[in-house]
Design a protein around this nucleic acid. Structure first.
Length: 565
RNA sequence: GUGCCUGUAGCUCAGUGGAUUAGAGCGAUGGUCUACGGAACCAUAGGUCGGGGGUUCGAAUCCCUCCAGGCACGCCA
């Protein structure tokens, strides 16, 4: 709705300029916001204040000129100019009430905007290497990434979800080796898993038992690679199953290995070399004397001049032994993404990957790629809280908190909502007590209950033989209209979420809408002897629309929309 | 030490240039409902927006600085 007002204001500006009522100049994008207070109208714009300087006119005069040239529109009842130069718009009440029909007509595409129409977007998220079950740290990225993908789709983008992984490095060798030792242990052999670098998680013990059950001791002489392949397949299967439980499915699993085979790594190295961005040395050029001392006698590695592109130091792309670091394929991967022609490629990362991403971006800049199409959402960490204190996860022994555990304890919808409803910049305390609370402390149930209540009314009305024939939207009261006003903000919320890559906005909006719903529900009744038939029909139709709004919001957040609770 | 993030009501957090009145939930206090459509609703209190300085007609919001907390600073991935 703000977008429609913005178009009117732009037309008015053009008209006023053409009529010489205003001097011509470049004007910024017209921003329309919901009014701070109801008595000030429904929407407001400060455009006249922003134009005062470039136009060299008084804000109040500019506002009047815009108001005078504002075209008529069915949704607009009037505009007022308020000091020091605000434009306050008031919605036409009949038009507002008629939005019940519009909501019902739009159905499951409710709130759709054209921000990304005709454009392709990629969201890369999760991207955990298959060394073990997804842990709680990764789950925030999983939820945020998927919600963003849903919002991008609602904003008109053609969206793909991608998972990047590598199964070639030392990490995976250690995994295979760990499973091999677990297997020998399961056969009763006396072998120890060294503390360093090996995977101590219980899941490998279980997997080893499965191997013994199926193969006996037939694998005792096999090399680690056999175990590695087996572990990788099993773990990937488990990760996908976990994601599936919260309704997350990737369109593509991109294996780093392919970049080794298609020459992408050599291409990156060659191009950087040609651009003079590489050098061979035992330590980077800006290193301190102390660092140099430590690197003395070391064979030279291949460094990328990241420090010339805004990173605090240079980074190694090829180790002394000639093998690539994690960074090199990461650069090639993101170059590949850009080459695939996405208009927007978003990467969901944990805060610990921030520097890594900076290096990748620096390399893309060095390669002359257009890295502006690349966006990154950096998520601060998640802490599990229980009884007011942190529930520690011990990674050393491998028995950390997994996403599966979290889903088991709290349910998919609670996991979804509570991990989404926080800005990426803020550290997230996941409150286990709150997540399982069955009362209105818990925003998950508060929101879902709005949907349940709508469904309940419709069900009861159906049983009572009531339908919405003869609904007359002009009979809607103040509370319903307030709800509709809020519901009309959905497209703007979707648009802002997408433009800023801030999917948490939808979660807060859903809660706000629920807080407008519940008080209304108490008073605006459909069934009751004192409710005249036309009014009952009108309200019934209204609640159908309200239900649709909540269902849409829940779907956008990847949550279920229950009919009963 | 350097970089990034955070600091807003007792608690958990929204709000990142606009309206003499900074919002929401929880908690607190006081009410409503002989519960119907059942995880309810209403009211009240509570804030030097971490401190200080600056820019602006206007700052929680932008800039500088200081303080406090989190994360990262590997030839790991």
């Amino acid at each position: 709705m703000p977008a429609a007002h913005a178009r009117l204001v732009e037309e008015a500006l053009a008209a006023a300029t053409a009529a010489a009522a205003l001097p011509s100049c470049e004007w910024p994008a017209v921003e329309i916001r919901p009014a701070a207070r109801p008595e000030l109208g429904d929407y407001a714009s400060a455009i006249a204040l922003q134009l005062a300087r470039p136009m060299r006119r008084k804000p109040l005069d500019i506002a009047h000129a815009i108001a005078d040239h504002l075209p008529a529109a069915p949704f607009l009842a009037g505009v007022e100019v308020a000091p020091p130069g605000f434009l306050n718009f008031r919605l036409d009440e009949a038009w507002l009430c008629s939005q019940v029909e519009e909501i019902l007509r739009e159905g499951d595409s409710l709130g759709r905007v054209e921000t990304g129409a005709g454009q392709r977007a990629l969201v890369e998220f999760v991207s955990a290497n298959p060394t073990g079950p997804l842990h709680i740290g990764r789950s925030r990225g999983a939820i945020v990434g998927d919600a963003l993908a849903r919002l991008l789709a609602a904003a008109g983008y053609d969206v793909e979800r991608e998972y990047y992984f590598n199964n070639a490095g030392r990490q995976m060798q250690m995994l295979g080796e760990s499973l091999r030792l677990r297997y020998l242990q399961a056969l009763g052999r006396q072998v120890d898993l060294p503390d360093e670098d090996f995977y101590h998680g219980e899941y490998l013990v279980q997997m080893a038992r499965d191997l013994v059950a199926r193969h006996g001791d037939a694998l005792a002489r096999d090399q680690g690679i056999r175990f590695q392949q087996y572990a990788e397949a099993r773990i990937f299967e488990a990760i996908r199953a976990t994601l599936d439980r919260i309704d997350i499915r990737h369109d593509r699993f991109f294996n780093e290995h392919g970049l080794y085979e298609n020459g992408a790594l050599e291409q990156v190295l060659g191009d950087l070399q040609d651009g003079g961005q590489l050098y061979e040395a035992a330590e980077w050029e800006g290193a301190s004397e102390e660092e140099r001392g430590r690197a003395r006698g070391r064979a030279p590695a291949t460094w990328f001049r990241a420090s010339k592109f805004g990173v605090d130091k240079d980074h190694v792309l090829l180790r002394s032994d000639g093998t690539p670091t994690y960074t090199l394929p990461d650069v090639a991967y993101h170059r590949d993404k850009l080459a695939r022609g996405y208009d927007l490629a978003v990467n969901i990362l944990g805060a610990d990957h921030y520097v890594q991403h900076q290096v990748v971006r620096a390399a893309l800049d060095a390669l002359g790629e257009d890295s502006s199409r690349l966006r990154v959402v950096i998520l601060q960490f998640v802490r599990l809280m229980q009884g007011g204190v942190e529930r520690k996860m011990s990674t050393r022994r491998g028995d950390y908190e997994t996403l599966d555990d979290l889903i088991d304890e709290t349910g998919p919808d609670a996991v979804r909502y509570l991990l989404l409803a926080r800005s990426a910049d803020a550290r997230l305390d996941f409150d286990l007590d709150l997540a399982v609370a069955q009362n209105n402390d818990n925003p998950v149930y508060y929101i879902q209950n709005a949907h349940v209540r709508c469904a309940g009314i419709l069900r009861r009305a159906g049983e009572a033989g009531l339908d919405d024939d003869g609904a007359d939207s002009s009979l809607l009261g103040a509370a319903e209209r307030r709800f509709l006003r809020k519901a009309l903000e959905l497209p703007a919320v979707i648009e802002q979420s997408v433009l800023a890559q801030e999917p948490h906005r939808i979660a807060f909006y859903a809660h706000e809408l629920a807080t407008m719903f519940h008080p209304m529900y108490e008073n605006v009744r459909v069934l009751g002897e004192d409710v005249p038939p036309e009014l009952a029909a009108t309200r019934l139709r209204f609640y159908s629309a309200a239900q649709l709004v909540f269902r849409r919001l829940l779907t956008l957040m990847g949550m279920s929309a229950p009919e009963t609770m």
